[in-house]
Amino acid sequence: MWTHNPDDDAEPFDELKDSITGFLQREEGLSLRQGYLMDVFGPDGKLQHRLDARP
């Protein structure tokens, strides 16, 4: 996942966790049985946040 805001912290992504994982489950068949970590990269390509998307 990418963000254009270099100052985004975890909060905006944590608020979207359910909609993002729901979409990935429906559209991509993603299984969350073992958990899921999603990396968020800033505009410079550096890791900005790691979203813990376990249910």
Rank of each mutant, 00 (worst) to 15 (best):
F23A: 13
G35V: 00
F13I: 12
G42V: 05
H4G: 15
G42T: 05
R54S: 13
L30W: 04
Q34E: 13
Q25F: 01
L51H: 09
A10R: 08
D39I: 01
L51F: 08
M1Q: 07
L32D: 01
Y36S: 07
F23T: 04
R50M: 04
R50Q: 10
D39C: 00
A10W: 02
R33D: 15
M1A: 12
L47K: 14
M38Y: 06
Q48N: 11
D52H: 11
D18T: 13
G35I: 00
E28H: 15
G35P: 12
E15D: 15
S31T: 14
E28F: 14
D9V: 06
D8K: 03
G22S: 12
D44P: 04
T21A: 02
V40Y: 07
V40T: 05
D8R: 05
M38P: 01
E11Y: 10
D18G: 14
L32M: 02
G29E: 05
K46L: 09
D7W: 13
K46Q: 13
G35R: 03
N5M: 08
G45V: 10
R33K: 15
P43W: 00
D39V: 03
W2M: 09
T21E: 08
L37K: 10
I20D: 04
P55G: 08
M38I: 15
L30T: 05
S19I: 13
A53P: 08
W2L: 12
W2D: 04
S31V: 06
L47M: 08
D39Y: 12
T21S: 10
V40D: 09
N5H: 11
H49K: 04
K46E: 12
R54L: 06
F41H: 14
E27N: 10
Q48T: 03
G29R: 06
M38A: 10
M1S: 08
L37Y: 12
G29K: 03
Y36C: 15
V40E: 08
S19H: 06
G29Q: 02
R33F: 01
I20S: 02
G45L: 11
G42D: 14
W2G: 04
Q34L: 15
G29M: 05
Y36H: 12
D39T: 09
L30F: 04
D9K: 13
R50S: 09
L32N: 00
E27Y: 04
P43V: 07
T21W: 06
W2P: 00
K17H: 02
L47A: 01
G42F: 01
E11W: 06
A53G: 11
L24T: 07
I20P: 14
P12N: 05
M1K: 02
A10V: 07
G22C: 01
P43G: 11
L37N: 14
T21F: 03
